[in-house]
Amino acid sequence: MDYKEAWDYQDRLFSQVLDIKARNRAAAPDAQLPTPNYLLFCSHPHVYTLGKSGHESHLLISEELLKAKGATYYKINRGGDITYHGPGQIVGYPILDLDNFFTDIHKYLRYLEEAIILTLQDYGLTAGRIPGLTGVWLDHEQQVNPRKICAMGVKCSRWVTMHGFAFNINTDLSYFNNIVPCGIADKQVTSLAKELGYEVALEEVEEKLLNHLANLFDATITVTANEKRY
């Protein structure tokens, strides 16, 4: 799905949830409406996105080279620095009202990370966190060759979230050579396929990831035909 199209779709859902919360503040308790929660999985054509705290110098190629590589570039309203999205990657966008779960953004990020860590365990890989660095890493303990396999960047307003994570499955990692990924110059990026030595169907990984997210958030996830196309 085109990045801007997905961003606009996220923004519509995000705004709808915020509107319900605003109306609820003015309504009697028995007239308040429940807020919905959404989880979007998709992949994007080649695109680089720069978060609010990022540096434009971390994009290492010109606009002309971007076009030659068939890539686009957006400055966006999430936290974090620059990252890459492309085919073979699972991008997850939770639009959640954390008032329905817990009002702790750090816990929220740790739960997203944990879902990725548990999914990697399903494939026999040990992953974890590096203190001070958001995301999921391999060789996170000894750090002889630490490798990021999932980047994260979110926005949260009135406890409603948007944006999310990018999990490298069968990703063409050469596109990361055109940036300083997440502003970290001294660590590598990897993918599930690179670590396993073979490609894995995105749908298979999505199913495992979905189950872990549901368990961590103690949520029941319903997929309709209309939602699935996003």
Rank of each mutant, 00 (worst) to 15 (best):
98 L>A: 11
179 I>T: 12
17 V>Y: 05
64 E>D: 14
80 G>K: 05
39 L>V: 12
26 A>W: 11
82 I>Q: 01
160 V>N: 03
182 C>M: 09
84 Y>C: 03
78 R>Q: 09
203 E>C: 09
124 G>N: 04
165 F>K: 00
48 Y>V: 11
24 N>V: 12
179 I>H: 11
201 A>S: 08
67 K>H: 14
184 I>Q: 02
204 E>L: 13
46 H>S: 10
145 N>F: 12
66 L>Q: 14
80 G>P: 06
108 Y>I: 08
150 C>Q: 05
172 D>T: 03
201 A>Q: 10
148 K>T: 09
171 T>K: 07
116 I>K: 04
170 N>G: 00
41 F>P: 06
220 T>E: 15
163 H>R: 10
93 Y>H: 06
134 T>L: 02
111 Y>E: 10
33 L>N: 12
225 A>C: 04
194 K>T: 11
99 D>T: 13
206 E>H: 08
88 G>T: 07
19 D>W: 07
219 A>Y: 02
125 L>C: 11
73 Y>E: 08
199 E>L: 12
6 A>E: 07
209 L>I: 00
87 P>D: 12
40 L>C: 02
24 N>Y: 09
54 G>W: 03
39 L>M: 15
213 L>I: 08
57 S>D: 14
138 L>D: 05
47 V>E: 08
78 R>F: 04
98 L>W: 03
199 E>K: 15
44 H>F: 05
68 A>C: 07
224 T>R: 01
63 E>P: 09
132 G>V: 03
58 H>R: 04
174 S>V: 11
159 W>N: 05
148 K>R: 13
191 S>N: 09
67 K>V: 10
110 R>L: 02
30 D>A: 11
36 P>E: 05
147 R>T: 13
222 T>V: 14
22 A>V: 15
13 L>F: 02
186 D>K: 15
175 Y>P: 01
42 C>L: 14
79 G>Y: 01
92 G>Y: 00
192 L>P: 05
14 F>L: 01
158 R>V: 01
66 L>P: 05
124 G>F: 00
133 L>Q: 09
57 S>H: 08
60 L>D: 11
18 L>W: 00
132 G>S: 09
11 D>E: 14
97 D>S: 12
119 T>R: 03
63 E>T: 13
28 A>H: 13
23 R>P: 05
155 K>G: 09
157 S>W: 03
182 C>Y: 06
170 N>K: 09
97 D>Q: 09
201 A>N: 12
223 V>D: 00
38 Y>D: 00
198 Y>L: 07
119 T>Q: 01
